[in-house]
Design a protein around this nucleic acid. Structure first.
Length: 183
DNA sequence: TGCACGATGAAC
DNA sequence: TTCATCGTGCAC
């Protein structure tokens, strides 16, 4: 497997999101290696995207989003769950791609069909916020034989408050994959 | 300093 | 469809 490099992330989230499908999310800690195949993602396009956290400006929480690409933006939702994003585009653009679901490949227990469940299965919490995805510990990687995938585009989930941004087709998933959070 | 509300998941 | 649960962001 080949770890994705900074340049992979240094592009518009609209481009990075579908490119992440079929890639592998890897976490190595305590001598254990967990692997999941990314099957569902959402793109958040920056401060002008009213569904993106960065649309409220640079705050302590969104600081990482405004930073350099290839870093993990992890936040808590509903006081209960964590969500993992990869920061994309050059620093200051405040874009990101939310990892919504993975297909379990190695050392993952429990369901992984939803952003909160992905973090739970990988043991990802607030302490992972800001981690460099181009380093060790937590990263995304590609396999050599990368067969082309059927990709489905849908509106993002849980962002109905975002006006017309809620209707844009910024959610991407692998066609026919049984591990997506919902059709 | 207080308060309304989530980029969710599970139960009913 | 409802509820759990708490950090954030914004209104006073």
């Amino acid at each position: 497997m080949k770890k994705l490099t900074r340049s992979f992330y240094e592009r518009d989230a609209l481009e990075v999101a579908p490119a992440l499908l079929g890639k592998y999310l890897v976490r190595e800690h305590g001598g254990v290696r967990q692997v999941g195949r990314v099957v569902e993602v959402e793109a958040y396009l920056g401060p002008h995207d009213l569904a993106a956290h960065s649309s409220r400006g640079r705050t302590p929480r969104t600081e990482v989003m405004f930073g350099p690409p290839g870093h993990a933006y992890v936040y808590m939702v509903y006081g209960l769950h964590y969500c993992l994003n990869a920061v994309t585009a050059p620093a200051g653009n405040a874009q990101g791609v939310l990892i919504r679901a993975v297909e379990p490949i190695q050392n993952l227990s429990g369901r992984t069909q939803g952003p909160g469940l992905v973090c739970r299965a990988f043991g990802i919490d607030r302490s992972a916020n800001g981690i460099d995805l181009c380093g060790a510990g937590l990263y995304l990687a590609a396999r050599a034989e990368d067969a082309p995938l059927g990709i489905v585009r849908r509106p993002r989930i849980g962002v109905d408050y975002a006006g017309h941004w809620a209707r844009r087709l910024l959610r991407f998933y692998v066609r026919g994959n049984p591990f997506i959070s919902r059709p």
